[in-house]
Amino acid sequence: MSQTNTADFTPTIVAFLCNWCSYAGADLAGTGRQQYPPSIRVVRVPCSGRINPIYILKALVDGADGVMVSGCHPGDCHYLAGNYYARRRFTVLKKLLTVAGVNPDRVHFTWVSASEGARFAQVVTDVTDKVRALGESEYKSRRGGERA
């Protein structure tokens, strides 16, 4: 499975961040010179409710070691209710992934507001640690071959 399960392994984590809170939170982490591991690949989405669960599956199947999803705190959605719908979807998706044998520590959901730059850095650090502990994704090898 994984030969890279060492401290210097930097996992590839796809991070879906909502435009209004978490992306701005990531921005604040940057302008505030917060340090966090260079492991995330950010995909900016309008709202956490815009994230089709298939995006998360696709990221895993195409070889991401982990997926992180972050949106506005419940009650603070720019579109009023998008993150409430997303919350149900993510709850069910994580259960489904567990049933299908995907380690739940590969997929993380959380809320980060635009003012929580330090928290964003902390979340990325935590998520990276958890995914690093699991090593390289076992789903990489599930693909028949490399895709262009």
Binding site: L57, V61, V92, Y139, R142, R143, G145, R147
Partner: peptide, 25 residues
């Protein structure tokens, strides 16, 4: 292109988990 060219494990995982999400509840 959600559907990879070959019917490998990744494609099956995408299909069956995606469909299970669509049919949840």
């Amino acid at each position: 292109d959600w559907h990879p060219e070959s019917p490998d494990m990744g494609a099956k995982m995408l299909y069956h988990l995606g469909r299970a999400m669509h049919l949840a509840g």
